[in-house]
């Protein structure tokens, strides 16, 4: 399977690439979003600012939307999850809008949220399979979906409850960093890859 990590040019991708690189998978980094769509799995990684990343998606935003709605598997991590929503209070720019709702600042005494937080009410089987009960977060903003049916796990920081993960078909968005959540996080990503590999676009 070909796994394409969209590269905004803003952060550490080594650990993520290492986690994604399974036995028979080929991981490529791609800076051109139009070319990034020619893949079996698109990964939107987690470091950077919303506006800058949205600007890099802009040239192929409609093809990207169509590809995800047509079932192209996608994993969005942290900022990558936020890009799956419509817009962000962090800055201007248009998100993909696969999920309805905005991204707003965490309503908490300490922001950014940096550290390990419990994953609550996890309904997606990946969490149990990976035994992922606590995950590493590094975020100032969180997604506020209008329709809560896509939320498959929650976390709470200083009383602000926000989606830890959202799911729409074979697209999965996670607010935490699985590639920084030690062995259970690594297992979580690998379980997702297995599900995609087995289920293909219908997963």
């Amino acid at each position: 399977m070909k796994i394409t990590v969209f590269d905004y040019g803003a952060g550490n991708l080594h650990s993520l690439v290492k986690v994604l690189a399974g036995e028979n998978d080929r991981v490529v980094l791609e800076t051109d979003i139009a070319r990034a769509l020619a893949t079996d799995l698109l990964v939107l990684p987690g470091v950077g600012a919303f506006s800058a990343a949205a600007a890099q998606l802009a040239p192929a935003l409609n093809p990207l939307r169509t590809a995800l709605r047509d079932g192209l598997p996608c994993l969005g991590i942290c900022l990558g999850m936020q890009l799956l929503f419509e817009a962000s209070d962090e800055g201007p720019g248009e998100g993909i809008g696969l999920f309805a709702g905005r991204v707003t600042r965490l309503d908490a005494a300490r922001v950014p949220q940096i550290g390990w937080n419990a994953v609550e009410q996890a309904s997606d089987p990946l969490f149990a399979r990976a035994n992922l009960r606590s995950a590493y977060y590094a975020n100032s903003f969180a997604c506020r979906p209008r329709d809560l049916s896509g939320v498959v796990a929650w976390s709470t920081h200083d009383g602000d409850r926000f989606p830890a993960a959202v799911r729409a078909g074979s697209t999965l968005g996670v607010q935490f960093h699985p590639e920084k959540s030690s062995a259970p996080g690594v297992s979580f990503v690998r379980q997702f890859l297995t599900a995609i590999r087995e289920g293909g676009r219908s997963c």
Partner: peptide, 8 residues
């Protein structure tokens, strides 16, 4: 912070 986010 503007380029990479405050969290890093």
């Amino acid at each position: 912070a503007a380029r990479f986010g405050a969290q890093c």
